[in-house]
Every structure is written in C-alpha cells, then in structure tokens.
Design a protein around this nucleic acid. Structure first.
Length: 206
DNA sequence: GTCAAGATTAGT
DNA sequence: CTAATCTTGACG
C-alpha cells in the first residue's frame, strides 16, 4: 500500500493545494473492503477572507475541524440530506479547506454501487454528496486524520493527462469577490466531473 | 425558544 | 422547477 500524502502537502494555502489534489487517489476502507477513486474535481475555501467559506465567521462547534491542523477531514451535513468531505489545509487556525467534489471510481465499485443504490459509473461519485454516500463518509469521520493511512486517506496518483481547468465555485453565496473567485478546479473533459449549474467551460490553469 | 437558510440531489 | 430533511447559527 502506498504512503498517504504527508501533512506538509496539506499545510499550504488551499488554492495551492486544491489543483494538486487532482489525479490523487482517495482511499476509504470500510467493512474490510477498499473503496478508492481518483480525484477529478475540487474547490478551495479559505478562512476569514472568503465569504463563501464556512469559516468566514470564525470557529463554531460545526466547523471547528476547519481550524485544526492540516490533513484532517471536515465533514458536514448539508440540506439535512447529504454529507460533504473537505480536507483541511493551511496553518492551524486559518480555517482553510478543500472540498472534494468528484471522483473517478477505481476500486470497490460494486460496494459503491450498493451504497448508492445506483449502477451507472458516471453517476456514482460525480458530486460532493454522492461521493460521500459511495464511500460511506459521514460526520463520524469529521476530524479524522488523513495522514495516518487508516480508514480514510489520499495517496499519490499518476500525474493527470487531462489539462486542469478552473471556474467559479458551485452553489456558493457570499460577496461578489467570493462569487468571482475561480477556485473550482477540475480535470477538463473528464467524464466523472460533476454536472453543475455552471458552464463547465472554464479557463485553463495555470 | 424560534426560525430561515444551506459548499445538494433526484425526480417531475 | 421543487421537495426532501435536519442541523446550524443568529437573534432575543
């Protein structure tokens, strides 16, 4: 088994970490099985200077993981229905994180299909709520340390062949700066990127 | 205590 | 377009 990405990888600004997570492998062990997918879409959220971030108004019981050390999970429930997985970045106290928005399924696909109640590979993990359901991720994993290489972690994957593209973040509220920031990163043309209200056309990155 | 809104998804 | 579904955070 490969080594998990080290804490130093995550201990940088979210906007620096986010695009580098593309192509890496998210691994989850569950019921003795290995569920894994290639990260194909992410979004960066920073702290007090980002009106779209849960950390914008400072620490609360819900978002306290965001203010902890880098490399830990921040998992929250949205709309009372879906969970979303973030990985904390930056320095402790910053309140930065990267939201994992879509995966390309690699391993444990049958289990993911069972967990989702859907067969279609392209609908399995192409959204933040969907991927959490497929990997059995919920608030019990909030605060989990991804650098341990147990239960949930990220390991290095081959450099993506696809070009990296950016766009504004999906579904966010906030001030005009928050709406304008192109902090969504995805592998251009990859069929496992989430379908969104936004136009998937976007500028190339860098 | 009350209440509106939400980094979404599936179905009409 | 809208319902689902429930926790959080703001306010008093």
């Amino acid at each position: 088994m490969a080594e998990p990405l080290p804490r130093a990888f995550y201990a940088r600004h979210a906007v620096e970490v986010a695009p580098e997570l593309l192509g890496q492998i998210l691994v989850r062990t569950w019921k003795g099985q290995c569920l894994a997918g290639r990260i194909v879409e992410v979004e960066a959220y920073s702290g007090g200077d980002d009106a779209a971030s849960h950390a914008f108004r400072g620490p609360t019981p819900r978002n306290r993981s965001m203010f902890g050390p880098a490399g830990h999970a921040y998992v929250y429930l949205i709309y009372g229905v879906h969970h979303c997985l973030n990985i904390v970045t930056g320095r402790e106290g910053d309140g930065q994180a990267v939201l994992i928005r879509a995966l390309e399924p690699l391993e444990g696909i049958e289990m993911m299909q069972a967990l989702r109640g859907k067969r279609d590979l392209h609908q399995l993990t192409n959204g933040p709520g969907k991927l959490c359901q497929a990997l059995a991720i919920d608030r019990k994993l909030d605060g989990h340390d991804l650098c341990l290489g147990q239960i949930l972690w990220v390991e290095p994957g081959p450099s993506p062949q696809e070009p990296i593209a950016t766009s504004p973040r999906v579904g966010v509220r906030g001030d005009s700066l928050a709406l304008q920031r192109a902090w969504r990163f995805f592998l251009d043309g990859n069929p496992f990127v989430s379908r969104t209200p936004l136009n998937n056309r976007a500028t190339r990155w860098p």
